[in-house]
Design a protein around this nucleic acid. Structure first.
Lengths: 151, 151
DNA sequence: TGCTTGCTTCGAGTGCACTCCAACGTCATA
DNA sequence: TATGACGTTGGAGTGCACTCGAAGCAAGCA
């Protein structure tokens, strides 16, 4: 019954980012959204085709009109993409939202699994950072004395 | 003159990881290396083909015999790969090593650029983590009261 | 000697995430 | 009203990083 409410609460969560236009005047063209998000119009259409977007409104002539909520969703998707999360998982999450409130538990589990992945990845990167620091220090030291036998 | 020294100091840097066999008996077949590193034999050959490996020794019949140093290099490459660094950049770094000591400065710059990328990526991931935490909290709260109007 | 396993090369195939094209329709402005 | 920028679609193409296949040589063992 309250799919709309559920979607709104979810889609708007956590990003108090100012929208380009206030609610009520938020009917962006695809090229506006491309400019705001850094995604190409091609990619935005492709996201819709594969089910990664919630339903995008259309003008009377069939052109897309994106809302502030769509922008929030895209900001979230963009963050997830940076983590290396496969698009298929994001599509699954989008499906769960479309299916309504009874998927709350599964959505939570999916996000928790994602969070575990992100934490693992951060740990890996910090590991790599340590190696890079070590090697950079080696080169910095070697610039004066390039014959160090075993740095 | 001291390319070998330079390579050794660089390749061995920072990983005191125990090798499967001590130096002197380190002539691993490709399938052994595949087992140790988790890479496939195909990938190892491909790395060599594209110039991502330093020269790999061969047996009298032409089969590859990997050394402990090769293992260290692969461990490093694997770490860099996790950062999303393009293979082409790693190939460039490998080339610089082959070119000798006079590329120390360029190597250092390349690693520093990589380090900046890694730091940026870590920051992005921590940002994403905050969003995930927020949304997971929302679902955890909503499980009791699924009608929260604007989480 | 035959069998299995592993190695070689080159080249083609795969999966992902876009990215672009062609052909056409729509909108805003001079 | 005309022109040019922007929008639509389905489908094909791209680039990356592998991944696999085929054909053939080599080593170890019953």
């Amino acid at each position: 019954m309250t799919e709309t409410t559920a979607s709104r609460t979810d889609l708007c969560a956590s990003a108090p980012s100012a929208h380009p236009r206030p609610d009520g005047q938020d009917r962006y063209t695809i090229s506006e959204v491309a400019a705001f998000t850094g995604l190409t119009a091609h990619t935005l259409r492709w996201y819709e085709r594969i089910g990664l977007m919630p339903h995008v409104d259309r003008s009377h002539t069939g052109q897309r009109r994106f809302s502030n909520r769509d922008l929030d969703w895209l900001a979230f998707v963009t963050k997830l993409r940076l983590t290396g999360m496969p698009v298929a998982h994001m599509v699954r999450y989008a499906e769960l939202i479309r299916e309504g409130d009874h998927t709350f538990e599964e959505r939570q589990e999916l996000l928790e699994a994602t969070r575990r992945d992100v934490r693992t990845r951060i740990a890996e990167l910090q590991d790599t950072l340590a190696v890079l620091d070590y090697k950079i220090d080696f080169y910095a030291g070697a610039r004066g004395a390039p014959e160090g036998p075993s740095a």
